[in-house]
Amino acid sequence: MAKRPLNRYRPFLLLGLFIFIWKVVPKSVQLTLHKSFYEFQAPLWIGSSKIEDLHSYWSTRTNSENKLIEAGIQLSRNNHELRIQLDQVKLQQEELNSLRSLHNLSPINNYTYETARVCKRDLTSWWQEITIRKGDNHGILKNSPVIFAGGVVGKVKETYETTSTVLLITSRHFRMAARFENDPRPVTYIGSINSSFGNPKGIVRDAPSDVIVTQEKSQKLVSSGLGSIFPEGINIGTVHYLEPGTNGLFKAGKVLLDKRLLYLKEVSVLLPKNK
């Protein structure tokens, strides 16, 4: 009979025990547990992402020969144009490097590009992250900048053996130094959660009061190179309006980001050349 009341509260005693153990367990043990449980699940995501790749491979194979020949012709035209542009870029790069060496300045392009497939997208109203299929084994470093064809994607938040999580540019916790394309003065970019069925967006703050941006005269926002994560001049988005901020000294406004951020399939991680 004496056992009954104890049995009734046994679940809550267990809960208390769980809290106690969790508080007593050192952080390092919690971190190891976190990593182990993450690594345990990572092969599932990678596998699922590879199945998706296989699916798109087989769906491409079902295309008719004529369609593939047409696509091949278009691709070779694109390659030809890009090769010409690449030659021009190389010439300009060489010229720039020689000019910088004349003035004893360090070379601008200090990065190598590590391309990675996206295997998981977590774009919730609470957090905005993606998981890529490359990690410690591929030399990915924490806080490395991540970009794609449309500009900034975010920065590497955490690295694991074969995967890494990337904090997206749309995350509320993401902020970076930026500037308007034709203005060297720095402004602050902050991520903003995108609304349902809407486009990705962010917020620009601390814009000087003499900068004028209207619907007709929109301006591109690019990375400023300050803050030592992103190199200078990478596209962030477009600003269509600015209004006076709360302090009246600076202006603030909304930044429209590239739509493709919502369905990224491949990104590039910038890694320092000397590493």
């Binding site: 599932l44 995501w45 699922s48 998981k120 997208r121 977590d122 774009l123 919730t124 109203s125 995108n194 609304s195 349902s196 069925f197 809407g198 919502l262 369905y263």
Partner: peptide
């Protein structure tokens, strides 16, 4: 895994 795949597809609509 099934929910994750669903969410991967729903990101285009910004729904989770």
């Amino acid at each position: 895994l099934f929910v994750m795949e669903l969410n991967n597809s729903l990101t285009t609509l910004s729904i989770t």
